[in-house]
Design a protein around this nucleic acid. Sequence first.
DNA 1: ACACGTTCTACCATTGAATGGAAGGTGCTG
DNA 2: CAGCACCTTCCATTCAATGGTAGAACGTGT
Lengths: 246, 246
Amino acid sequence: MANSASGDSVVDRVVRVIEAFPEGVTSLQLTELADRAGLPLSSAHRLVRQLSQHGLLDLGAGGTVRLGLRLWELVNRNSPTLALRQAAMPFMEDIQQVLNQNVNLAVLDGWEALFVERLSRRGSVANRARIAGRMPVHISSAGLALMSHQSREVQAEYLEQFEDPSGKVTAQAVRHFLAEAAQQGYAQLAGVVDPDTWGIAVPVVNGKRRTVAALGVVVPLAEMRLQALVPALQTAARGIGRQLGD
Amino acid sequence: MANSASGDSVVDRVVRVIEAFPEGVTSLQLTELADRAGLPLSSAHRLVRQLSQHGLLDLGAGGTVRLGLRLWELVNRNSPTLALRQAAMPFMEDIQQVLNQNVNLAVLDGWEALFVERLSRRGSVANRARIAGRMPVHISSAGLALMSHQSREVQAEYLEQFEDPSGKVTAQAVRHFLAEAAQQGYAQLAGVVDPDTWGIAVPVVNGKRRTVAALGVVVPLAEMRLQALVPALQTAARGIGRQLGD
DNA sequence: ACACGTTCTACCATTGAATGGAAGGTGCTG
DNA sequence: CAGCACCTTCCATTCAATGGTAGAACGTGT
C-alpha cells in the first residue's frame, strides 16, 4: 500500500473534507469527519492539520474541526456572485421598503435554484429559505422563472430527467408552468413551500440577454396583489440587469 | 526533479490557488493565476482542472478561472460565522429600524476586525461591498471594542507589535483608546474612516463570557447622539449574546 | 495573407511526497 | 482502575504528482 489505496488524488480528498460538513453543521469531530469523507483517520488528521495551518480549516483542541474564517473571507470576497449581489442589493432594498415582503435572489445550478441573497420582511422573525439554500426548480417560483428562460435544449434535458419523489407533480404540469411563466414573464406558485404563502419571481437578464438570476418575493396569501407586485419586480429586475452589463 | 521542485505540498498549492484572487476580483486568466500562485503553468492547469471537476473552481472556455458556486454554497452553509449571523440578524434589523443607521457586525482575526455582516442605512445606496472586508484594530471602533475585551496577554502582544504605517497614531494613543473602551463598555472613533462619520461599537459576549464579536453603527457626525445609541447597541449586544449560548 | 506572440492544453518519464497501519498519548466513564 | 474512545505521531513503502516540452488555437500587427 502506498499513495492512495483507494485511487483518489489529494485534491479529491481535500474536496471531500470540505464537503463532509452536512448542511448547517459548522463543527465536526475529527473521527466523524474522517468517516464522512471516507478517509483513514491518520490521513484525515494530516490533511486537516495542513489545511488549518493555512487557515482554510480550523482544528481546535480535542479534534474539533470547523471551516476557517479565512476561507469564508476569501470566498465572500472573490465569489462570482459578488457582482450580482452588489448590483441587486439596492433594488432588493427598494422592494423590501415599498412592498414590505421577503425578497430573494436566486441563480440556477443544475436543476435547483440556489438562493444567493435574501432580505426578510420587516418585523418578521422566522426565515424559511436560507442564504446558500437550495430548492428544486419545480417547487420554487424562482426556479421556474429561471428555467422558463433557459434554451429549449436545457429545458428538454430538464424535463427528460424530471421526477418528483413525492409524486405530486407530473412532468406535464411542470411543462405547463414553464410555458406559462415564459409567456407571462413571471412565475408564481401558491402554497407549495408553505400552505399560506405565495411565491412570485421574475428573471434577471444581463446585457447579453442571458438569464443570470431570478428576483422573487414570498407573500402571505392574504396580501396577494399580483397587479402591484409583478410590475415592481420586473422594474427592479431590469434595473439589476442594466447594472450588470456583461 | 520530481514531486514538487519547490518543496511544497499539494495542499499548499491548492491553498495558494484559492488565495491567488485579489480582493474583489472574481475572474482570473489561467496564466495570471499560475503567476500569482507561483506555480508552473502546467501544474496550475492540472490543479485547476481537478478542482473545477469538483465544482470548487470554475474553469471556463479560454482558461477563465472563477471560484465555484459549489464552494460559495458549502462555505456559506457551514461557516462558523453562520450561528453568529443568525443570532445577530434580528437585532441588527431592530437597530436599523429604530436608529436608521448603518449597522455592522465584526469578529477579531489577527490584529484586524473582519466584517461579517452589514445592513445599510435605509435610503442610502447599499455599500454591502464591505462584507468580508477588514479594518486594522486601531482605526475601527469595532476593532477597538473587540481588542479592549481581549486578555491582558493578547493586548500586550498586540501593542508590542503595533506600528502605524501612516505614523498618525502611536501605541500610547491606542493603549489609551483601549483602556477607555474597556472602562466605558463601548468604543468610539470619529472621522477616521470618513471625516464626516462617527463609529460606535460594543462587544458581544457569549454565555462563556468570551467576547466573540462587535456590534457597531456608523453615523454622520451631525446625527451623533451617544446617549441614545450606546444603550440601544448594548441592549442588542446582550440579546445576541443570550441567543448564542455556548 | 503570413509570421509572430500569447495563451491554453496534452503528454509522459522521473522520483520524492503522500500514505496508513501500528503504537503511544490523553481523557472520560462505569 | 480497567476499559474505551478518541486524538496524535511515526516511518518504511510506493505510486501519484510533477513540470519541461511540444502542439493547438487564438489574436494581432505588418
